Computed example of a mutant assay.
Amino acid sequence: MDVVFSIGNTRISVTIKSVVVAGWTGRGIEAVRHHIDELAALGIAPPSQVPLYYRVSNALLTQSETIEVLGDGTSGEIEPLLIQVGGRLYFGLASDHTDRDLERHSVAASKQACAKPVATPLWDFEEIKDHLDEINLKCWIEENGREVLYQDGTLAGIRPLTELCVGADMADGTVILCGTLAAIGGVRPAKKYRMEVSDPTNGKAITLSYDVRTLPIIS
């Protein structure tokens, strides 16, 4: 499938050949343990190793402002995105929306169950690689009729992105979602998400917003 991105004022159509979701990518044992404990509270078993790389369908990538999910047990999370095009690496923003109910039975299946919203803008990785740890990630959700901060941190909390690329076997057309940050108040569903990755060095930002439409579970 082809996805259209923008690099500065230039729009490019990229043929997606592989989508990888990296999990358990916290930098340092404390960050990993926190995420394991966070998901254990939802009944999700710990990983066999860290990090893990889940392959999902290319068709899950979407730039739609609304995604449809089955039931009330799903949630999104902000993630840095990397994509290789023409031998060059680019940085973007995505949400690893996941079925948390299904995750109790199979993390791999839960990753495949939901669309993965991605932002259109990309940054040249070469322009940011020397100050990656300073780049900030924030996610807000709508809760009880108001917007609340759900995730907040920097890339210093995630394993080095170049290290994650090695594990994902990057090639032209490969997309990798590189992991996330702890949720403020715990992992939980929401109907609206707003996300932003910002670079304090150059003042640039990439934003991503989407709504969640819940489909009924019929038995």
Rank of each mutant, 00 (worst) to 15 (best):
N9M: 12
L102E: 08
I7Q: 06
R27M: 08
C139Y: 09
L137R: 01
D199Q: 07
R213V: 10
Y150A: 02
R11S: 11
K192W: 08
K129S: 12
P51I: 04
I67E: 02
L208D: 08
D211V: 05
T207F: 06
G145N: 05
A113H: 04
K17L: 04
G157R: 13
V197I: 15
W140L: 00
S6C: 04
V175L: 03
V166L: 13
L161P: 00
K116I: 10
V175F: 03
L61M: 01
G8W: 04
A41W: 06
D37G: 12
E163R: 13
E68I: 05
A156V: 03
T180E: 05
V187I: 15
A183T: 10
D101Y: 13
E196A: 08
E143V: 06
V85L: 09
Q49H: 14
I217F: 06
Y53I: 00
P47S: 07
V3Y: 05
D152A: 09
V175N: 00
D169Y: 14
P51D: 00
A109P: 01
A108S: 13
E143Q: 03
G203H: 02
R213T: 08
N202T: 12
T120P: 00
G76W: 00
C178I: 11
E103S: 08
L181H: 09
I78D: 07
V175E: 00
G71V: 03
V21R: 09
I83V: 15
E134T: 05
H35M: 15
M195S: 04
S6N: 10
E79W: 03
L181D: 00
S209K: 08
P46I: 10
S110P: 07
N9L: 11
Y90F: 15
T98R: 11
R11W: 05
I44K: 03
L93R: 00
G28P: 02
A119R: 11
I67R: 02
I67T: 01
K129C: 13
S95M: 02
I44D: 10
N136F: 07
V56I: 15
V175S: 06
P216T: 12
T15F: 10
A119P: 08
P51N: 05
E65A: 14
L149K: 15
G157E: 14
R146Y: 11
D99Q: 11
Q63G: 10
A109F: 09
L161W: 03
V20H: 01
E38R: 06
S198A: 12
G86A: 04
E77P: 01
A40F: 10
S219F: 13
V69N: 12
D199K: 07
N58R: 15
G43Y: 10
A115N: 08
S209Y: 01
D2R: 12
K138Q: 14
I184Y: 05
V187S: 05
S64E: 15
L208C: 04
D124H: 11
Q49G: 09
V166S: 13
